[in-house]
Amino acid sequence: MTASIELQDLCIRYPIYGFRSKSLKSLILNKTIGGIIDIPGDYSSPEIVALNGINLSISENERVGLFGHNGAGKSTLLRVIMGSYHPSSGKIIVRGSISSMINLTLGIDENLTGVENIELRLRILGFSPRMVKNSIAEILEFSELEDYAHLPMRTYSSGMVMRLLFSIATSIDADIVLMDEWLSAGDINFAKKAEARLNNYLKKASILVIASHNKEMLDSLCTRIIELEHGSIVSDKNL
């Protein structure tokens, strides 16, 4: 099966609640006193248009860089591809398995030991117990944290935490890799090793989609740069 991502006229709109309080009270009050207080005719909340009419087709072997200001819709687009944000209108078709590096701390509990956290993280991502067992030794070895494997993670330094999270994330093979900014971890020695591992990991993936503010990094890494502005694609260049 070849991996591919296909977005057709995709829009993401979501209401901002809490701006005018997401409560039953406001809903009822709006109904009863709508004419007195200056509230727009209906009681709907203001909407954010995070993505607006995105048409995009990404196929095998593409390295796509998403570039744009804060709030341009880069991370939203990544979450749409990952499947946690569902389109308000339009269509998305994703073929292939996905590994998301958007939130490395997902599911991490600092009261659990290193090993337990590895297990938790991998189980959340759908690994079977046997697959988890096989991965644990490899992850510990690469992160050089074998001695700390059975200590609770709250005893780790922040560098050690990053090393562990990085090692977990790069141990999950997938057809499509989603990244929010480039990853690096640890001290100088480890960072070199990590860089090599990450490059190797990305080589194995069919598709990479990475969001970043770093234009130079994107230029050197990607085969295609997509620039977003206010939720729309403003440029789409193959390098």
Binding site: R79, M82, G83, S84, N103, L106, L125
Partner: peptide, 8 residues
């Protein structure tokens, strides 16, 4: 909410 936003 963290899990819901970052997994499918």
């Amino acid at each position: 909410s963290g899990m819901i936003k970052d997994t499918s």
